[in-house]
């Protein structure tokens, strides 16, 4: 009888109401996230395409889309990348200290303080960057220009206000530090004791134990943490908009001069208020570009993690 009513159901299995409700709830939650994502993508595409196709004389910048957006993409990527380069070693170091070096009490307090950093609103970071960090970085930039001027990044002339892309990068690095530290710390704490003892029993010092047992195990977690950090750095708007002194259309490797490229997010925030007509579409299109970049970065990160899957700690 059962077989005629539900031919595909396995014999002897009973479907319980609770199971059915829960699976329905979780499935619809999963579908909802897809719908939201699709909705945002559709909006960006529909509103953005006219901006991409707009004539130079229809928009405020007087440029066609790709020449207009390229310096912004460049600025976004360089700010996020440099921020990540600064933040990753610090986050890994702090997380390792909290999880394996510090006394337990101190580790807890430190972990709490780092989490607190995440609760600071980005406008406050912007204020800190513009009022405190920028002026204090000026001597550093001057020094960099005098001593490392042959490196394109520090070619100078050094900014007199300190409101450079480098300052923005440092602010971004501080902003992405908490989430990266928190994830790294959790992953490091999960390192199987067996692997740690294997390393120690071979005569590893604490640092060598970290290299042999903790980092390989935590590799994919560190990459995930970096990607979350990068995502936040790519999209961070207010702090960058406040700190950075922008010269439109700049594409330069120089991190310490007073002519800096803006980032996509900061540019949208600063320009949106006085935009109208096709200019709005251009800004939305630049948002679409940011959306695509974030997507690509995430895919790239995933493939990095997947490539050595069979060597991961999971099996």
């Amino acid at each position: 009888m059962t077989s005629t009513l539900a031919p595909r159901r396995k014999r002897g299995t009973v479907v319980r109401a609770g199971d059915r409700i829960f699976s329905g709830l979780s499935t619809s939650a999963g579908i909802l996230i897809l719908l939201v994502l699709a909705g945002v993508a559709a909006f960006l595409t529909i509103e953005g395409v006219p901006g991409i196709l707009a004539n130079p004389d229809e928009v405020k910048s007087g440029q066609s889309f790709w020449p207009y957006v390229w310096p912004l993409v460049y600025g976004t990527l360089i700010a996020a990348t440099v921020a990540l380069i600064i933040a990753t070693p610090v986050a890994v170091g702090v997380a390792l200290f909290i999880s394996h070096y510090s006394p337990r009490k101190l580790g807890q307090i430190l972990g709490y303080l780092v989490d607190l950093l995440a609760a600071v609103p980005s406008v406050v970071y912007g204020l800190w960057g513009i009022q405190f960090l920028a002026p204090n970085m000026v001597p550093v930039y001057t020094w960099l220009e005098d001593n490392l001027g042959f490196v394109p990044f520090f070619a100078g002339p050094a900014s007199a206000t300190g409101r450079t892309i480098m300052t923005a990068c440092i602010v971004l690095a501080v902003m992405i530090l908490p989430i990266m530290t928190a994830i790294c710390r959790e992953i490091f704490l999960q390192t199987p004791r067996l692997h740690e003892e294997a390393a120690l029993a071979l005569g590893a010092t604490r640092w060598e134990m970290a290299r042999l047992a903790i980092f390989p195990y935590a590799r994919s977690g560190i990459v995930s943490a970096a990607m979350l950090g990068l995502g936040r750095a790519l999209g961070e708007t207010l702090a960058v908009a406040m700190v950075l002194s922008v010269t439109a259309g700049t594409v330069t490797a120089n991190l310490i001069s007073s002519t800096n490229p803006s980032t996509i997010a900061a540019n949208i925030a600063l320009s949106f208020g006085e935009a109208s007509g096709k200019t709005v579409n251009v800004l939305i299109a630049s948002g679409l570009v940011l959306f695509v970049i974030t997507f690509l970065v995430n895919f790239a990160a995933r493939s990095v993690v997947d490539r050595r899957k069979e060597f991961s700690g999971a099996n």
């Binding site: 067996l194 692997h195 071979l202 005569g203 991961s312």
Partner: peptide
């Protein structure tokens, strides 16, 4: 000391990433 005195554990623990 541990470089001089080796140890094998209850559960096999090769480094999984190596």
């Amino acid at each position: 000391v541990r470089r001089m005195i080796g140890m094998v554990f209850q559960r096999p623990n090769p480094f999984p990433t190596m």
